[in-house]
């Protein structure tokens, strides 16, 4: 059986908020390393991989591998009943029909108990190869979100170029064009506000802004985001949590 307790419900609430517009139904794979999820969007253009590691739980017990087939819209309805500061306990049997969720407030005078029906989801897992990326950019997640939103108002696609000059996001649309260039600017006192760029080789790729804007819904998970790019492979966008991560992969647009 599974029994997993989070000190703060906000952790799972934010994870579900981050991915629910990308995938609808997915398996939460529970095993002795924690709770993991891997799912593609309907069009198979983007992939999300999530890991909540056991260290992040106040209590974690999972005797054998359990796949919780969850509709994320339904899960979000139940999670609305949890306050951010509530302690959340997840429980499931070995072959569960339902996931039990218990929310307790810090004063210990309210206990909310919910059951979420589970579904059988036949989901294939993809092997994600270890990749030495040509360029890796770490920057404030809020700034990345702003750039994606601003450019998405002009165009469907963004060209991302990483050179020794910096990283340039540019787009062209019906009403005009726009570009934002970021230069390396580490912040010694507040590293989360700085921008660092590691460049092995110049990279130039084109991506759909619709997906990037969607990924930015994970900005609440972390003050910083890491963007990893290599020519002609999917881009990796990672939001790192204290004990886990949410990673998004996006296939590029490539000339015929």
């Amino acid at each position: 059986m599974l029994e997993a307790r989070l000190e703060q419900s906000s952790v799972l609430k934010k994870v579900v908020d981050a991915i629910k517009d990308l995938v609808q139904d997915c398996n939460f794979d529970c095993n002795d390393s924690g709770i993991q999820l891997q799912a593609m969007d309907n069009s198979h253009v983007a992939l999300v991989a999530m890991h909540l590691k056991t260290e992040g739980f106040a209590l974690y017990r999972c005797d054998r591998n359990i796949a919780l087939g969850i509709n994320l819209v339904s899960l979000q309805k139940v999670l609305r009943a949890a306050q951010n500061e509530d302690v959340m306990t997840l429980k499931a049997e070995d072959s569960p029909d339902a996931l039990s969720l218990v929310f307790e407030n810090s004063e210990n005078d309210r206990i909310s108990e919910y059951d979420l029906k589970l579904m059988d989801i036949d989901q294939e897992h993809l092997g994600i190869p270890e990749t030495e990326y040509g360029a890796t950019v770490k920057m404030p997640s809020a700034e990345f979100q702003r750039i994606c939103r601003d450019l998405s108002l002009l165009s469907e696609s963004v060209a991302i170029e990483a050179t020794k000059e910096g990283i340039k996001f540019s787009c062209t649309g019906d009403i005009g064009k726009g570009a934002v260039t970021l230069r390396q600017n580490p912040n010694v006192e507040k590293p989360e506000l700085g921008t660092t760029i590691e460049l092995q080789e110049p990279v130039a790729l084109t991506f759909s802004l619709k997906y990037l804007v969607n990924f930015c819904k994970a900005s609440g998970l972390s003050n910083t985001v890491t963007i990893s790019l290599s020519n002609e492979v999917p881009l990796l966008i990672e939001y790192e949590m204290e004990h886990g991560y949410v990673r998004f992969y996006l296939a590029p647009k490539i000339g015929d």
Partner: peptide, 14 residues
Amino acid sequence: PTKQRTISSFFAPK
């Protein structure tokens, strides 16, 4: 003209 690729054309099923 560019064409949107799919993730499965890069990552193989396990």
